[in-house]
Design a binder for these strands. Structure first.
Length: 288
DNA sequence: AAGGTACCCAACCGCGTCTCA
DNA sequence: CTGAGACGCGGTTGGGTACCT
């Protein structure tokens, strides 16, 4: 029998869902045959785990999820499945994609290794606090959680949307995107402060940034202290970020190539205001 | 308007580990 | 113990879409 490859069709999704709902998952090779799917067991498993499984959370990663990913990756490295265990409803594939497309891109532009201490410290000392600051700002203009627009995490709907089209939020006009735009800026990082952030948290990048490095004396002297408890799954919302925002290091000590990432997330991520409030409730557990 | 580019993400691939006969 | 099949993980690719020039 010739095996099918490529994108799954609605019919295939329905076959897989129906079979698993009746017989459970596992034994993927035989499952594929019994369900009448011309797919490998591997393909069926992947489709189920990454897309069709009912408890999969759709939509962009919330800021707190992003923070958790950064923190866990600094501890565990590319252990995507292990990291995914701490983010209910998120798949290792999704987290891996996030890391590769967002985080590693920033590291490349900084010309540092995404696993280096320098990059980690840049994240922890500036991006995370800045993200939290943005969250504070956003929450302060919100009158009440109940009035917020709510984005419910919805299970995949293969019947109506087997392969959802991607949607990218348009970039704001003042967002920094390209090296050409960077070259237009003449300021130096020694002059950089938080006022260099645009309205959505992007850092406005100076001309000479691409040749700059983060001073090692700054990063190397910092003891890397993981304050996160091992049981991330339980403590996902009680993660204390206060230490991150209380550090007294000026931005001018760091020289970076582009910090568009968190700012971009703040605009492109459809994290909702309910989640912001949830993030501020220290004792609440997240979907565990 | 059209072509080029960047981005996102679903899906595939290779390989290591596990399980069981 | 060993070999085969199943499973799971991490790396990579390719297609679709949005944005840019």
């Amino acid at each position: 029998m010739e095996l099918r490859r490529g994108p799954w069709t609605l019919e295939e999704d329905n076959l897989l869902i129906h079979y698993i709902s009746c017989n459970g998952e596992g034994r993927w090779n035989s499952l594929a045959k019994c369900a009448g799917l011309k797919r490998t067991g591997k393909s069926c498993r992947l489709r189920w785990l990454n897309y069709l499984k009912p408890d999969i959370k759709r939509g962009n990663l919330t800021p707190q999820e992003q923070l958790l990913i950064l923190e866990l990756h600094s501890k565990w490295g590319n252990r995507w499945s292990k990291i995914a265990e701490c983010l209910p409803g998120r798949t290792d594939n999704e987290i891996k994609n996030y890391w590769r497309t967002r985080v590693q891109k920033q590291a490349r532009q900084l010309k540092v290794d995404s696993n280096s201490n320098k990059f980690l410290e840049a994240i922890r000392r500036f991006w995370m606090p800045r993200l939290l600051e943005k969250m504070e700002q956003n929450s302060s203009v919100i009158s009440s959680p109940s009035s917020m627009e709510t984005q419910k995490s919805s299970p995949p709907s293969p019947v109506t949307n087997p392969t959802p089209s991607m949607s990218r939020c348009p970039k704001t006009s003042n967002q920094v995107n390209t090296c050409d735009q960077h070259r237009e800026k003449s300021s130096t990082w020694s002059n950089l402060n938080w006022d260099s952030l645009d309205s959505v948290g992007n850092l406005m990048v100076p001309e000479n940034a691409e040749n700059s490095v983060i001073p090692s004396q700054v990063c190397d002297n910092i003891a890397y202290d993981h304050s996160v408890q091992d049981d991330y799954r339980v403590n996902i919302t009680s993660y204390d970020m206060s230490a991150l925002v209380s550090e007294d290091i000026s931005m001018s000590e760091f020289q970076v190539a582009e910090f568009g990432w968190f700012g971009e997330d703040l605009t492109s991520t459809s994290w909702n205001t309910d989640e912001l409030w949830e993030f501020r409730k220290p004792d609440q557990e997240l979907g565990v």
